[in-house]
Amino acid sequence: MSFATALVLAFSLSMDSFAAALGTGAVLRRPGAWEALRVGIMFGGVQLAMPMLGFALGLTFAAYVEAVDHWIAFLLLLGIGGKMLWESFSDDADEDGEASCGRQGLAQLFLTAVATSIDAAAVGVTLAVMDVDIVGICVLIGLVTFGLASGGVLMGRAAGPLFGKRAELIGGLGLIAIGAKILIEHTLM
C-alpha cells in the first residue's frame, strides 16, 4: 500500500473521531489544551490498536479467503463507508453525539473512542489479506486521529455544528474510494 493510500485510509478512519471531538468541543464552554490532548490521546491510541486487532483476526482466516480477498475488502469498506455516509445524512445522530460528548470520565471517553473505532477493526481484517506494513499503517492512523481529535476539540466550540456531519461524509467517501481501488487493482490488473 502506498503512503498516499495509507494517508487517505488514516484520514477516512479518523473522521468519526474528528466528528465526536467536534461534538465534545461544541458542548464544552472553553475546551483547553489539556482536554484536547486527553481526547486526542484516547482516540488516537484506540484507533491505533483496533486495526491491529482486526489484522490479527484476519490473519487467522487469510488462507481461507485469499481467492476472494479483494471482494471482501471492497464489500467491507463499502459497508463501512456507506454506514458513515448514511449517518452523515441522519438528523438525529449529531444531536445524540453532541448530547453525550461533554467532559467525560476516562471510562466514558474510552467507550466513545472504541465506538468510533469499530470500522478501524474491520479495515484491519481487510489489511490482513494484503501485503502491507500493518505497524506503519496503524501508527499513521493513530497519529492522524490524535491530530484530528485534538484539533477537533479546539475547533468544536465554533465549528462543530458546521463540520460534524461533513466529516463523516468525507470519511465515508474516502473508504468507498479505497475499496473501489482495491477491487479494480485485483480484478483488472
Rank of each mutant, 00 (worst) to 15 (best):
T60C: 01
E87V: 05
W34A: 06
A21T: 02
I176G: 01
E66A: 15
P161D: 14
V139A: 08
G81Y: 10
M130Y: 05
I80D: 09
G152Y: 06
I176C: 04
I118E: 05
A67S: 14
L111I: 14
T145Y: 00
L48D: 10
G32T: 08
V144C: 03
G160M: 05
M52N: 06
D96F: 08
D133L: 06
G40K: 07
I176A: 07
W71D: 04
D94W: 14
I184G: 01
A21Q: 06
F163V: 13
V144F: 06
E66S: 15
F146H: 03
E168P: 00
F18E: 10
K181A: 12
A26T: 00
V27S: 13
I118C: 06
E98Y: 08
I178G: 04
F11I: 07
T116Y: 00
L148I: 01
V135T: 09
A33T: 12
E185H: 11
V123N: 09
V153E: 09
L173S: 10
G171D: 07
F43A: 03
V68L: 07
E168Q: 15
P51S: 11
F11E: 00
S14W: 04
V39Y: 01
L169K: 12
A107W: 15
G172C: 06
M84A: 13
F163A: 13
A56Y: 09
V144W: 02
A63Q: 12
G44F: 10
F11S: 01
G171V: 06
I141E: 08
G171C: 06
V135D: 01
G172W: 07
K181H: 13
L111V: 14
T187I: 13
F11C: 07
L162S: 02
A115C: 03
A159P: 00
A33F: 15
A120V: 11
A6Y: 00
A158G: 08
A62G: 00
L154K: 02
C101N: 15
A99V: 05
A10R: 12
F11Y: 01
